[in-house]
Simulated assay, not measured.
Amino acid sequence: MTEMFDAAARSAVFFDETHRIIRDQLRRFVEQEIKPHAEAWEREGATPREVLRRMGELGFLGLRYPERFGGAGLGATASVVLAEELGRSGFGGVAITVLVHTDMAGVHILNAGDEAQQARWLPDIVSGRRIAAIAVTEPGAGSDVKALATRARRDGEDWVIDGEKIFITNGVRGDLVIVAARTEGAPPSSAGVSMLVVERGAPGLTVARALDKHGWRSSDTAELRFEGCRVPARNLLGQEGRGFYEIMRNFQNERLVLAAMAMGEAQAALALTLAHVRTRRAFGGALWDKQAIRQRLAMLAARVEAARHMIYALARRIEAGEETVREVSMLKALCGELVNDVMRDCVQFHGAMGFMRESAIERMARDARVQAIGGGATEVMLEEVAKRM
């Protein structure tokens, strides 16, 4: 099963030699430096900072960032390769820790920051010396970004932030938190939302609690509280009141990356299950000998391969600057549901062992569940598609 997906990726028109080298290097890193240790990280509730530093040293955190900041200056296809290989690790918490840093948080400084801000923060992001988080979601505002209640007001040479953020990946250990806050008195709407960089130790920023999750156990997730939190005026990213549009701008990349991560998870689950059914015996033969099982796995493999090709095609379109909101929304809904279809059948074919905490497939199924929720719930994505039909 794994070999089938590898062959397809290597023969696809979407890849060049650079992407193949990155994939091979990432796969070795996952096998040697993530898988042997990630069970311990699951118990600890976070991926060690040293892992990101090591990934920075190897160039994995800077794939999308300009060379002048230590990056590789590549496009969306490189992010897809990174997300897919991290997904294939089978540890969703590790994967999302890295991808939030590279493609969901730090990227806002690249997209909206001025030269001084980029020079100040991007080298540390690319090297992994400082970990980035993005704080948009609130207790009363998730996918509905227009409903944000956190506010920031100008006070002399500072912005003062008040509000709460929740479900913030890297929020406990993050060094740079990119906060979406309402900076104008307008009622809830797309107008008046701005983005500010809040550094660890800023007065008024507290981690209210570390959240206990169903899956993604090796990522830290926080509820953050801002109570008169002061940040310098120079920490405003982009234009005041234009933050909503910056968030929307990166949603396409974020959702593409989550889809690629999900399909990496699906590939790993199928490979694991294929090995299991070929050796597990029942009723006089291997489970693989049962036509119903073979055919269900074959259909899942076909659906995953089709989704992967859509991911790669959309990455190329994004690199070309094309409008892809409808198609990326389709993709996020498709992959979020598909990875859960794959996990359901893979757990089923593992039998009772698939229900045990000691089995990899049980952990992977828990991790995959959030793929239909985070980054844009399936229902929200389908509405985005329907509006454009």
Rank of each mutant, 00 (worst) to 15 (best):
T169Y: 01
V177Y: 00
L86M: 08
V277R: 05
D114K: 08
G284I: 08
E254S: 10
A302M: 08
V304N: 12
E3F: 01
G264F: 00
I168L: 03
P66I: 14
L176S: 07
A8C: 12
M195N: 03
K165T: 10
D345P: 04
G201D: 14
A133I: 03
S89I: 00
T378M: 14
A259S: 15
E240A: 14
R317Q: 07
G204F: 04
G71S: 04
C346Q: 11
A260I: 04
R64Q: 14
M364C: 15
C335N: 11
S219K: 00
V231A: 02
V370D: 08
D16V: 10
S127D: 11
M381N: 15
V328D: 02
G243T: 05
G228F: 02
E115M: 05
A191H: 10
A313Y: 02
G264P: 01
R49M: 03
A181M: 09
H350K: 11
D220V: 03
R296G: 08
G93N: 09
H108K: 02
P203W: 05
L338H: 02
V177Q: 02
D144P: 01
V13L: 11
I96H: 13
L58K: 15
R182T: 14
L99P: 07
N250C: 06
V80N: 02
C335F: 04
F355M: 15
D220E: 11
F60N: 00
V385W: 07
E39W: 08
G243M: 03
I311F: 00
A372T: 06
M261G: 02
R68D: 15
M381H: 11
G228M: 04
P48H: 06
V136C: 07
L148A: 10
D345F: 13
A302T: 09
A286D: 15
S11L: 06
Q267Y: 09
R23H: 06
L272V: 02
A302H: 04
A259I: 08
H214N: 13
S127F: 06
L272M: 03
E227Y: 04
N111S: 09
R255Q: 12
Q371C: 12
L86N: 01
A260D: 08
F15E: 03
R20N: 05
R53C: 12
A112I: 02
Q118R: 15
